[in-house]
Design a protein around this nucleic acid. Structure first.
Lengths: 229, 229
DNA sequence: TCCGTAAAAGTTGTAGGATGATTGGTACAT
DNA sequence: ATGTACCAATCATCCTACAACTTTTACGGA
């Protein structure tokens, strides 16, 4: 068996290593990288080669360089950064539609495939959401609300679905956070959570999909109303 | 209102221009770029700067360089390339699930929003598919089959949905094409087309979604059977 | 003429050095 | 305390040189 010679360019090798360092969290987000001189020595390449690698990741949205100051880690995911740039062009509502379409599929698959572990996790999140709701702790409520939706999608077991959904959710919330105080009705969201959890427990795919769909309609109307003003 | 100063680096300016040239089709896929020397003069930058810009697009998957030969355009879309790299890690079946989830959403939206123009286009494609089916022209049949599905999604009017769907479809078909002769039943696919077109004409969202769902199940079983062997 | 080989030309890959531009901090004079 | 000038660190850009690889051309032998 003849093997293709490993002739990845030095630049791509360096870039791949840096991506790995970021993905593994050894270079954390918002943290500064060592200066070019130091990196040159560590990787054992010339300045040009190193800079081309850095530039590749900058363009991909993983890094950001500031002349005179240094280089920062800005994102840990290529897919996320690509979506981010793309979504800026489309509207928030379009993103919402796609996201819910994904979540609906996920809810059905979750109802079909969920494990006991998934159920335990979902129940814990529902409880946490309830507590936040009673305390009227909006931040905590939103956080665990997002957590709940993500957990549903994770229970689907489809990794592509999980990745797409998570990135779109992050986008959507950072988008929303910028210009309005998201204050969805506590009771309403909680009602959905309980119903959806119930459907998934009973492995009732049709109901799971339906509850997600209802939620989408409500949230869509809500956002339409907010953006009209 | 204080505005952030526009100080894009030369590298990013060059990269952006090149991206635009690719997106607009002035540099076509699989075509060779002018050599570095020429580009240096055209953009008015040094070789290092130009190379960093090229490297950024290479890493993003838009370009591919071959030492001693030249630089080729490999993709016209950043999102497409990002998905491509990502999808390699997930399975074909996962991709299929996500794609159908998107198409189902699209079918409902198409039923709601389709214009007369959309309908005319769909009818034309159905006719083309029928002709190919009668001639038993498999290539043409597959081509217009894809065209039909894409047209449905385009009628949804959601640009993010359209982009995601198209890239995933391209991926899926290039994937499938690699290791099996896709020979879905002519009659079956054509039946779906007619039913789906009918539902969209009548603006019946529920039926449109249902037909897509049925199709998904059939195709899923088909692929499962093929990959088992 | 045809074919294979060698030379040449063209192109990207990598290295190293030099200078400019920007940032952040320090020391000093007021 | 404040503001100014200066300095050090860092990235941005440019330049030159050579290595590695590919494609084209030229040439010599059958």
């Amino acid at each position: 068996m003849i093997q293709k010679i490993n002739r990845l360019s030095l630049v791509e090798q360096v870039a791949a290593q840096m991506e790995q360092l970021i993905e593994q969290g050894q270079w954390k987000i918002e943290e500064k990288l060592p200066p070019e001189m130091e990196l040159m020595e560590k990787f054992g390449v010339s300045r040009n080669t190193l800079r081309e690698a850095i530039r590749a990741l900058v363009h991909a949205g993983l890094l950001e360089t500031k002349q005179g100051s240094g280089t920062l880690v800005k994102s840990a995911s290529v897919l996320g950064a690509a979506l981010k740039r793309h979504v800026k062009k489309s509207t928030m509502l379009e993103t919402l539609e796609v996201r819910f379409s994904l979540e609906k599929q996920a809810a059905k698959m979750a109802a079909e495939r969920r494990t006991e572990e998934d159920l335990t996790k979902l129940e814990a999140i529902v409880l946490k959401t309830k507590v936040a709701s009673e305390k009227e702790d909006i931040d905590q409520f939103i956080t665990s609300d997002i957590e709940f939706h993500k957990a549903i999608v994770q229970a689907s077991g489809n990794q592509l679905l999980i990745d797409l959904y998570e990135h779109m959710t992050d986008l959507l919330y950072s988008f929303v956070h910028d210009f309005l105080d998201m204050q969805p009705s506590f009771q309403l969201e909680q009602g959905l959570h309980l119903n959806l959890l119930d459907a998934i427990q009973k492995q009732d795919q049709a109901s799971a999909a339906m509850y997600v769909e209802n939620d989408m309609e409500v949230l869509k109307d809500y956002i339409l109303k907010m953006t009209e003003e």
